[in-house]
Each structure stands twice: as C-alpha cells, then as structure tokens.
Computed example of a mutant assay.
Amino acid sequence: MEHGPDMIRLLPWTGSEGKPCYVIGDGTGYVSRMADDIESIQLDMADDLLGHADSLLADRKGTGAEVHFLASRLTESLREVKRVAESRGARLGAAAELDPDRNRP
C-alpha cells in the first residue's frame, strides 16, 4: 500500500454517542495500524458468522431465539463491514484524486 499526503480516515469504531471517529495521517501511524488490525478482525468475524448462519439455516431446527440471536449478530457484523467498505472506498477515492494517472488503462 502506498502512503502519501495526510488523508482523513474513518475508523472502524465510534466515539461517544455512536459518533464517527477519524484519524488524519498518511496511514502509517499507530492509530492507522490499530484500525487496520481491527478491520481485519471484523472481516474475519463476519466470515465466521456467515459460516455459522449457513449451518443454522441449513439445519432448519434452529429455534426462534437462535435465529433472532443470529439476525442480531449479522446486523452488527454488516454494520461493521459496511463501515470498513466506506472507509476503504473513501481512501481509494482520495488516492485516485491525488494520482489521476492511477485510473488510466
């Protein structure tokens, strides 16, 4: 991953009252590295949760409480994965703006 001028990055966690948190930097600092690690964990957990969902739904013996619990965890996970996608998409857009030749064939 290339690093360049300082950019604003949406972090994979929220602050008080659920407000978004950001870091400004070139992507090499401690907070950016911690955010990378947390994003990786969130994506791995989403993958594990999908496997669990496949199993529970294929079994067709899950109780309403189990399906409700699964839906709650899937909702949390989807929210986290969406935040990761937004953060990464914004950084890709910012990088493309800084390097117009990057998008040329």
Rank of each mutant, 00 (worst) to 15 (best):
M1R: 13
M1C: 14
E2H: 10
G4I: 00
P5D: 12
D6H: 10
M7I: 05
I8G: 06
R9Y: 10
R9Q: 13
R9E: 06
L10R: 01
L10Q: 01
L11E: 05
L11R: 12
P12Y: 01
P12G: 07
W13L: 12
G15K: 04
E17T: 10
G18D: 02
G18A: 03
G18S: 00
K19W: 11
P20Q: 10
C21Q: 14
C21T: 08
Y22R: 11
Y22T: 12
G25Y: 01
G25E: 00
D26T: 03
D26I: 00
T28A: 06
Y30K: 11
V31S: 03
R33N: 11
R33F: 02
R33L: 07
M34W: 08
M34H: 03
A35N: 06
D36W: 03
D37N: 14
I38E: 07
I38M: 08
S40A: 14
S40W: 15
S40N: 11
S40M: 15
I41G: 05
Q42Y: 02
Q42W: 04
L43D: 07
L43M: 11
D44V: 04
A46W: 07
D47W: 09
D48L: 15
D48Q: 13
L50I: 15
L50E: 14
G51Q: 12
H52I: 15
H52G: 11
H52V: 15
A53D: 01
A53E: 10
A53I: 02
D54I: 06
D54G: 07
S55K: 12
S55L: 13
L56W: 00
L56H: 00
L57Y: 09
A58Q: 07
A58E: 14
K61A: 09
K61Q: 13
T63L: 03
T63P: 00
G64L: 01
A65W: 04
E66Y: 04
E66S: 05
V67Y: 04
H68S: 15
H68F: 14
F69R: 12
L70I: 02
A71T: 10
S72Q: 13
R73D: 05
L74I: 10
L74Q: 08
L74N: 02
T75Q: 15
T75F: 10
S77C: 06
L78W: 07
L78T: 07
E80S: 12
K82A: 09
K82S: 13
K82R: 08
R83F: 00
R83E: 03
V84E: 03
V84H: 06
A85N: 06
A85L: 11
A85F: 08
A85T: 05
A85I: 08
S87R: 03
R88N: 10
G89E: 03
A90R: 07
R91V: 04
L92T: 09
G93E: 08
A94G: 08
A94V: 01
A94R: 03
A96C: 04
L98S: 06
D99M: 12
P100T: 08
D101S: 10
D101I: 05
R102V: 01
N103K: 11
N103P: 04
R104N: 09
R104S: 06
